[in-house]
Write a protein that binds this DNA or RNA. Structure first.
Lengths: 104, 104
DNA sequence: GACACATATAAGCAATTGATTATATTATAA
DNA sequence: TTATAATATAATCAATTGCTTATATGTGTC
C-alpha cells in the first residue's frame, strides 16, 4: 500500500517541520539546520527522503542547494499540512539575525 | 507536535486496513483476525492504539467486542482515508464463508 | 463451580528508524 | 592548485516498533 509509505514519511516531527518551513519560502540546507538546531547530515537525510517521495524539489545555486515544496501530486498531504503549526516565528528570527546566517 | 503522533498511527499498513474494513461496517476482533490472516494479539494491540487515539470505538456484546470507526474528531484523517483502497472484496468473502467464521 | 471461547495484556525478539560521527563530493575563492 | 564552505553519503548506535508466544481476564454454558 503506497499510502502507508507516504504517511511514514509524514509521521516524523522533523520532516513535518521542514515541510512547514518550506511552506513559507524556499530554504537552503544550512538555514534549515540552523532553525531546527540539529546537524547537517540529519537534515540532508530527511531532505533526501522527502525528495524521493516527490514532496520537495531542489535547485542548486552556487554552493547552496535550495529546497522548496512540491505537494501538488499527493492531494491528502495538503490536508495534513493544514494541521501542522505555523513556523513563521522561527523563520523571522533567522531572517533578522543575519550575522549568524550560513548563507546570504 | 500532536499531528506527528496521529500520523505515526496511520502510517501502518495493518492499521490502515483495519480502518478501511471498519469503514464498511463494524467488526469484532476475530473477524478482523480472520480477514487479515494474522494473530489475535496482533490485532488487539493495533486496535488498542487506534482506540487510544480516538479513531475507533468499541462496544462489547456478549463474548465479542465490536469495533467501529469514529473519525469525526480528526478531520485530516478522513482525507487520508479517501486514498486507502477499498476492502469490500475481503469483507464479502468472509460474509459468504459462514462456516469458518468465529462469530455469527 | 468447571470448561470453552473471545479478547486483553505481558514479555521477548527481529527489523526499522532517527540521530550522530566520520568521510566524500561539489563549488567558490584566493 | 590549495583552502574553505555547503552538501551528500556511509557507518554506527540507541531507541522504537510490529509481531510472536505465553498468560491473564472476561463472558457464556453446562
Amino acid at each position: 500500500m503506497k499510502i502507508a509509505e507516504t504517511l511514514k514519511l509524514l509521521a516524523d516531527r522533523t520532516r513535518l517541520t521542514i515541510l512547514a518551513l518550506l511552506r513559507e519560502r524556499e530554504l537552503c540546507v544550512c538555514e534549515i539546520v540552523e532553525i531546527l538546531e540539529t546537524t547537517q547530515p540529519n537534515i540532508s537525510q530527511h531532505l533526501r527522503k522527502l525528495k524521493t517521495a516527490g514532496l520537495v524539489s531542489e535547485s542548486r545555486r552556487g554552493q547552496w542547494v535550495y529546497y522548496s515544496l512540491s505537494l501538488t501530486e499527493v492531494p491528502y498531504v495538503q490536508a495534513v499540512m493544514d494541521y501542522v503549526p505555523s513556523t513563521k516565528e522561527q523563520l523571522d528570527s533567522i531572517d533578522l539575525d543575519c550575522t549568524d546566517e550560513c548563507c546570504d
